[in-house]
Amino acid sequence: VDYIVEYDYDAQHDDELTIRKGDIIKNVKKLEEEGWLEGELNGKRGMFPDNFVKEIK
């Protein structure tokens, strides 16, 4: 499942992704941690907030 970024987010920890509006995040999975998703961007896998992105259908 792929998501498109709607709002910029700067990573706060090493396991998070810095994302920018218009980025496409690939292979996204829901995490047990409420409010977070995990996906791949530019060869890096990491977490990001689910309210900054929208699923591409």
Rank of each mutant, 00 (worst) to 15 (best):
F52A: 13
H13T: 10
D50I: 10
K44Y: 03
D2N: 10
E38L: 03
E55Q: 08
D23H: 09
D8T: 04
G39M: 00
G39Y: 00
D8P: 10
E32Q: 15
I56G: 05
I25F: 00
L17R: 01
N51E: 07
I24A: 03
Y3V: 07
G39P: 00
D8A: 07
I25N: 00
T18F: 02
K29M: 15
I56D: 06
I4P: 02
G43D: 08
E33V: 11
I56T: 07
V28D: 00
R45T: 15
L41A: 08
D50K: 13
N42V: 09
D14V: 11
K44Q: 15
F52T: 07
E6G: 05
G39W: 00
I24V: 08
R20A: 08
E33I: 13
H13N: 09
V53P: 04
K57T: 12
K44R: 11
G46S: 02
D8L: 02
E16V: 02
P49V: 02
L41E: 02
E32P: 11
W36I: 05
K29L: 15
T18R: 10
D15Y: 12
K30Q: 13
N27K: 06
E33N: 07
L41R: 09
E6A: 04
P49R: 11
E16P: 00
Y7S: 09
K30W: 09
I56P: 04
L37T: 06
D2S: 07
N27Y: 03
V53E: 03
K54S: 11
K21N: 07
V53N: 05
D10Q: 12
V1T: 14
G22P: 01
Y3A: 08
Y3K: 04
D50T: 10
I25P: 02
D14Y: 15
W36V: 05
M47R: 08
A11H: 04
G22K: 04
K21Q: 13
N51R: 10
K57M: 07
E40Q: 10
L31N: 12
D8E: 09
E38D: 13
K30S: 10
D23R: 02
D8I: 02
Y7N: 14
G43L: 06
P49L: 05
D23S: 07
E34L: 10
L37M: 12
V28I: 08
K30M: 08
E6R: 15
F52M: 11
N27L: 14
M47T: 10
E6V: 11
E38A: 07
K21A: 12
K30G: 10
E38Y: 04
Q12M: 13
K21E: 09
K57R: 10
E38N: 11
D10S: 09
V28S: 06
K54N: 11
D8M: 03
N42W: 03
L17Y: 00
D50F: 06
D2K: 08
A11S: 08
N42K: 13
E38K: 07
L17K: 01
D2V: 05
I56H: 09
G43N: 10
D15N: 07
H13K: 12
Y3M: 13
E6F: 10
L37D: 04
F52I: 13
G35Q: 04
A11M: 12
D50P: 14
N27V: 06
V1E: 13
V5P: 02
I24D: 02
L31Y: 11
F48K: 00
D23Y: 01
Y9I: 02
E33K: 11
Q12D: 14
E34T: 12
K30L: 15
I25K: 00
I56R: 11
E6I: 15
N51G: 10
D2F: 05
I19R: 00
E32S: 15
E16N: 03
H13F: 14
K54P: 04
H13I: 06
E34F: 14
Y3Q: 03
E32Y: 12
K26P: 02
G39V: 01
I24L: 07
V1S: 12
D50N: 08
